[in-house]
Design a protein around this nucleic acid. Sequence first.
DNA 1: GTGCTTGCAAACAGTTTGCAGATAG
DNA 2: CTATCTGCAAACTGTTTGCAAGCAC
Lengths: 150, 150
Amino acid sequence: MTDPQARFEELTNRLRECHYRMTPQRVALLRLLASSEGHPSAAQLYDRLRALFPTTSLATVYKTLSLLVEMGEVLELGFSDDDRRYDGNKPYPHPHLICIRCRKIVDAEAGVTQSLAQEMAQASGFQVVGHRLDFYGLCPDCQGAEYEIP
Amino acid sequence: MTDPQARFEELTNRLRECHYRMTPQRVALLRLLASSEGHPSAAQLYDRLRALFPTTSLATVYKTLSLLVEMGEVLELGFSDDDRRYDGNKPYPHPHLICIRCRKIVDAEAGVTQSLAQEMAQASGFQVVGHRLDFYGLCPDCQGAEYEIP
DNA sequence: GTGCTTGCAAACAGTTTGCAGATAG
DNA sequence: CTATCTGCAAACTGTTTGCAAGCAC
């Protein structure tokens, strides 16, 4: 992961460049996004935000998140079960390993996908602009336990 | 794609094996799933179903679909924007090419992913049981038109 | 006959929206 | 000072659930 402070400043600058206003709520959310290790949901961000900064609403979190997603500074990961997670550190497509038991999401290393995308594009005639690669399974911590989706 | 008739019988047999009842609504849905070229949504299936078979409810469509998904006979593809599509022909993970303009979804050919999954598993300690690989872009038909998400 | 299945409508969850008041620039 | 942003609550959308009646077996 990049340095949280550096990433925070990067995000701040990007917003300023686009002439968006820096409200305290936004500053707090940017700081959170820049320092979030995992892939938090909107509700999780909201909860953490209220701890530091009590007068914030969930609507504002959503509004700011969709702003950042649209700007390409946050990656949104939607799942089948109404679960959306956000990644403010690596806003470009990259593969994930997702634990089907504890819902942990970790980044995986793989540079293969770029060339794969190119290959796909040629074979299909699509002009590929993005991709998504997720692996589902049991993380090391959950392999001992009985298999059961919580 | 497999022969629709053959796939229909396969689905029917699988349900019977598990001692599920064959109602006319289910037969109609199975027939649709077996012959659907694209990756229809629940609502699309419901609409087509009513055309052939007027007394069907959306709830029944959902109930039967989740049954089939759980049995591993239908693949569910969830997207960020509350869009879920179903594939009754190839219920195992396989890559897709998704047009961001017209929402068309086509299957892509790639056997690479199995070995990639294995590689990921080794590197991360995850026990990988499934995956999802999607490429986003403009399909050949939509490349001429101005880029605009409808 | 038994109990799985259906269809309806109401419930549900996460997200989005409209609007009046607050505030960054 | 002005336009953007916030916070609230209501609206919305797709999906799920509870239940009485219906029907497959």
